[in-house]
Nucleic acid binder design. Structure first.
Lengths: 149, 149
DNA sequence: TCATTAAAAGATAAAAAGGTCTTTTAATAA
DNA sequence: TTATTAAAAGACCTTTTTATCTTTTAATGA
């Protein structure tokens, strides 16, 4: 569904939402180790997320990455869109170019409702609200211990 | 969501369901051109689908690929499983290794219901039933004219 | 203003997915 | 039994994705 890059982006942004703020910036290294994602790859990703105004950064001593209040008003779909684009969601499940209710692929009416609902769900909640829920419910935010078999 | 290979597999199997039978075998070339998929790539795919008993084949003159009655009793999920495996469906949406209702990732309760329902839908109908529906409703079965932008 | 810190940028490498080509095997019909 | 047809098998190439490394830029504090 999502690229690995997109998954890392969602996880790390939620991590920043929970652990950083304008007065408490976090380096890539710390985030990468915390959610167990390759450091240089995450650094690249962060550059893109900064350009996309999903997260913020400053250089130099005490510099690092963090979320502003404005960043926190974005939603999960914004993160995914910034990395993968929306095509991943909007494209036909079977890869047909012309697939809509007038000209549906064999699984169109099966897949379409799900896709729309899921899309809505990812637009429903802001990063801030997601983050709040995570800290309240103690949800998992790391890839540590991933079984690579 | 699905690999391209898996999409080709579903499309081409449904094509065989509609246009072939034990007495009317079809060559890869014809299928590849009909659904507009790369010929040698589809040939490889078909080998795997034959090994997985999703489709059938015979060599030699008048040989080709076709579906037996037994093949037709399989469902769409069997095709996907044969190419991509079921992991694509069962894996955590954010890539976490331990993600279940006891230890959910941030989007677990959003994604899980959809995934289960979709999985069920793909098990509901046999290839035969799908095929019948397609020929009755004239659904699209080709990638022709795909916009590659 | 200078040393230090940490991100930005860019070049490069490794792995996976997608796609192609050539040779071999099996079936059939002449 | 032989020529022909079409799939099976295996080697190979290309593109995309994932991941790494090195150099440059900007911010800060001494």
């Amino acid at each position: 569904m999502l690229s690995r890059a997109s998954k890392y982006a969602v996880l790390s942004t939620l991590f920043l939402a929970e652990h950083s703020n304008v007065d408490k910036k976090i380096s890539v290294k710390v985030v990468a180790e915390s959610i167990d994602v390759p450091n240089p790859f995450l650094a690249k990703l962060f550059q893109q997320l900064v350009r996309g105004k999903i997260i913020s950064s400053t250089k130099g001593p005490n510099g690092g990455f963090f979320l502003t209040e404005k960043n926190r008003q974005k939603n999960v779909l914004d993160i995914i869109e910034n990395i993968d684009g929306l095509n991943k969601f909007n494209d036909c499940f079977l890869g047909l170019n012309e697939c809509d209710s007038k000209n549906p692929c064999p699984v169109h009416f099966i897949v379409e409702p799900f896709k729309n609902s899921l899309l809505g769900k990812f637009r429903d909640k802001t990063i801030q609200e997601f983050s709040k829920e995570i800290s309240e419910n103690g949800r998992v935010l790391t890839l540590k211990g991933l079984d690579l078999s």
